[in-house]
Simulated assay, not measured.
Amino acid sequence: MNPLLSRFKRFYVSLPVLLFVSLLGCASGPKQEGTGEYIDDSVITAKVKAAILKESSLNPAEINVETFKGIVQLSGFVRDPADASKAVAIARNVNGVKSVKNDLRMK
């Protein structure tokens, strides 16, 4: 058998295996986001921050927003429980948010 032909066969057999392994690196797990999920979560975080910024009664500099797999976590400080409820309601109304964890504290 021709050695060059043997090399080509090995290459074409190993190519699908390499592609499969590289795709597994982009897959998500229970504690790790995939590439697409990370981008989606970044967009959700930006939308929630922008919506909070539009609300004049809230201080966006004191509210932190983090998103993991569509679950938004709000942390930081607000003046009263009504402001915390308002921030949670704003976050829930953003497209793509699955749920909101409220870790906001009163000053």
Rank of each mutant, 00 (worst) to 15 (best):
N2D: 08
L5R: 09
S6P: 02
F8C: 10
K9F: 15
R10Y: 10
Y12P: 00
Y12L: 09
V13F: 03
V13K: 06
S14C: 08
S14T: 15
L15R: 13
L15W: 03
L15P: 02
L15E: 13
L15Y: 06
P16G: 05
L18T: 11
L18N: 11
L19Q: 04
L19T: 15
L19D: 07
L19S: 15
L19C: 05
F20V: 10
S22F: 03
L23H: 04
L24Y: 15
L24E: 13
G25Y: 12
G25K: 04
G25F: 15
G25W: 05
C26F: 08
A27V: 10
S28Y: 09
S28G: 14
S28K: 10
G29P: 02
G29T: 11
P30L: 07
K31R: 04
K31C: 04
K31F: 12
Q32L: 06
Q32S: 13
Q32Y: 06
E33C: 13
G34D: 08
G34H: 04
T35D: 12
T35K: 05
T35S: 07
Y38V: 06
I39G: 03
D40S: 07
D40M: 14
V43F: 04
I44T: 05
T45G: 12
T45C: 14
A46K: 11
V48Y: 01
K49F: 15
K49M: 11
K49Y: 06
A50P: 00
A50D: 11
A50I: 14
A51Q: 03
A51M: 05
A51S: 12
L53N: 03
L53G: 11
K54C: 05
E55P: 00
E55T: 07
L58F: 04
P60N: 10
A61W: 00
E62G: 14
N64P: 02
V65W: 00
V65N: 01
V65G: 02
E66L: 09
T67A: 13
T67P: 00
F68T: 12
V72M: 01
V72K: 00
Q73L: 12
G76R: 00
F77H: 02
D80V: 05
D80P: 00
D80Y: 06
P81H: 13
A82R: 02
D83Y: 08
D83L: 11
A84M: 06
S85A: 09
A87C: 06
A87P: 01
V88G: 14
V88M: 05
A89D: 04
I90W: 00
A91G: 09
A91Y: 01
R92A: 09
N93Q: 11
N95M: 14
N95F: 03
N95R: 15
G96S: 13
V97Q: 03
V97K: 03
K101G: 09
N102K: 04
N102G: 11
D103N: 08
D103Y: 12
L104G: 02
R105M: 14
M106R: 10
M106I: 13
